[in-house]
Design a protein around this nucleic acid. Structure first.
Lengths: 340, 340
DNA sequence: TTGAAAGCGGTACCAA
DNA sequence: TTGGTACCGCTTTCAA
């Protein structure tokens, strides 16, 4: 048995297909007798008819959906972004098509192709492997296809980015001022370029404070909690032990906190831990985590706004939205332990 | 400027639309000269042509995608489910269309309509507000449209469910055996019916142990960390104070752990905390959380398997997959504190 | 107030 | 080996 079509409804109601279309879409510019209308609606209900969005969209141009691509479902930072996009997009009557790429370049390419193939009305992208999609996205954008990149502004399209420089400098200043000189950095990101500026500021801040950079304190890890845990274990085994750990995101910080706990160290007396993102959980960890807030929800809703604006005005000049990250100091950071 | 169509490619390559289609789809049953093929491919590259999935799917029936609907992005349990679905589905060459409903009945209805309207080849649903969609889903299923429900088997469709009864009985036995008699229950779920059996077992276990049920120890909270935090605060202020807290999921447990910490209580010496789901983070919290593992990844991949099977055999009898939850005891539970 | 028919961008059959 | 064309389900003029 197949799903009912407009024709089935028309037949059952004894009207033409056009009339069905008018009724379904509540076209106020076209006058329909109440009798006709209710005959159609009855038929719709009886058949459980729902219009085929593919056909609708094929015929009328728009798909009434925006596509969102995120790198990794496991990182809570991304859910807030998704939430921000979703709320904004739905408020404006659009559907959201969400895909994640599991930090896998091949999957990123495929899901991106899937999204563009479905002809969503706009694309919001958090790309981890930019190079591979660059030309095709540029092409799209050149044809006035709405594309918004999030967290990256190297493409010639609308973009919203978090600027981490100031806040990273602040967190480093915060740690340095507390007397920390050996600051481990857990740097677990999908693609290194995405967070280079944070790495730069880390190194610059140390240099400015006259502290030589110890490469053995920088640990490149994977994106899972377990990776953060192991990275922290490695860093804690350095001698002399670092007195502070800076973690690239809250999710990995959970693993780091665990390693710290297992090592029998107290926070913040024996060691300080700080991270990035300030996701919902940061304030609720034990102790509450000092974190650099990047405000995913706002990022998401700004990106969605840019996308929706461009759908309406395909030719308006490219816009860039910057959102400044801000340091939130909580209980996980404190004065450096004296000579251990 | 519009996106290029098959016709544009055909014109540029000097061939017919049919030929373009053959080349694009790598049809081995149709012989194409190498010269023609490369002319077409050149044109495709030059125009950055990508076929319109709506049109393809309209014509050929299948959309090559399965839709997944989850209630809440914030609960990590769901991401593992998503991951399981996504991996399985992509391995089989399908795209995944993911939507979340933010535990909002209206949104659930809308997103569900969006998914069915797009004529995905199968629907995998974690419904929170079942009643409202029941008739339309039944209709769909009656027409051999592949629908799989997850976490609920009350619809007459394929389903995969976690059976919590045994494991809930085990966690209760575990707590009772440790001497806990006042066991608070933080019950923050989207829709209460979804977890009634866990509530039943909670009450039955207490009754069987001869412990009267104190309704003031059951706290119905919302789904956010903050809700879990506040619920725990309320429970901790009861007199006598509960010596153990059972939390409906790991996410809320984070909030509960925070409340416990702020109250100056030690885990597990002063109070025990246990929860459900055993998501990735449970083992990494401080202390590691005793949790009932529901194995989201397996749930997801089983659901996807059911869906894919039904796509292939629309008429095979309905299947139900049960996955038994299992208790994982960790450091957050211990003997009840003596007379406080 | 309603109906007939063209066309959105593909696929697949039948002819050439 | 390639091209012509009907048709997937819908929207939207244009006529009736």
């Amino acid at each position: 048995m197949k799903r009912p079509t407009q024709t089935d409804v028309a037949k059952l109601a004894g009207v033409s297909r056009a009339t069905v279309s008018y009724v379904i879409n509540n076209r106020t510019d076209i006058a329909i007798t109440n009798g006709t209308r209710s005959r159609v609606l009855d038929a719709v209900a009886k058949l459980n008819y729902a219009p085929d969005a593919r056909a609708q969209s094929l015929r009328s141009g728009g798909s009434n959906a925006v596509g969102l691509l995120i790198p990794d479902l496991h990182n809570p930072h991304y859910w807030s972004i998704v939430q921000g996009v979703e709320d904004t997009v739905r408020e404006n009557g659009y559907d959201l098509l969400l895909t994640s790429t599991s930090l896998n370049p091949e999957r990123e390419a495929r899901t991106l192709a899937g999204l563009t193939g479905r002809r969503v009305d706009a694309l919001i992208l958090i790309l981890s492997f930019l190079e591979q999609s660059k030309t095709s996205l540029t092409h799209l954008a050149a044809n006035a296809y709405p594309v918004v990149t999030l967290g990256n502004a190297s493409l010639n399209v609308d973009a919203v980015v978090t600027t981490y420089r100031t806040a990273t400098a602040q967190i480093m200043a915060h740690l340095l001022q507390l007397g920390h000189t050996r600051i481990g950095f857990i740097f677990g990101v999908g693609s290194k370029e995405l967070a280079t500026n944070r790495m730069e500021v880390y190194e610059q801040s140390l240099a400015a404070a006259g502290i030589p950079i110890d490469k053995s304190l920088i640990d490149y890890s994977g994106p899972r909690i377990e990776d953060g845990y192991q990275a922290a274990q490695r860093l804690l085994s350095r001698t002399p032990r670092p007195t502070a750990l800076l973690v690239i995101n809250d999710w990995l910080a959970i693993g780091a906190l665990r390693a710290v706990g297992e090592a029998g160290l107290r926070l913040p007396e024996d060691i300080s831990v700080a991270s990035f993102d300030d996701t919902e959980m940061a304030a609720f960890l034990n102790p509450p985590l000092t974190s650099v807030r990047s405000n995913g929800y706002t990022l998401g809703s700004e990106a969605a706004t840019l996308a929706l604006e461009r759908i309406r005005q395909p030719d308006r000049p490219i816009r860039r939205v910057q959102i400044e990250a801000e340091l939130v100091v909580r209980g996980s950071t404190g004065p450096a332990a004296r000579g251990q």
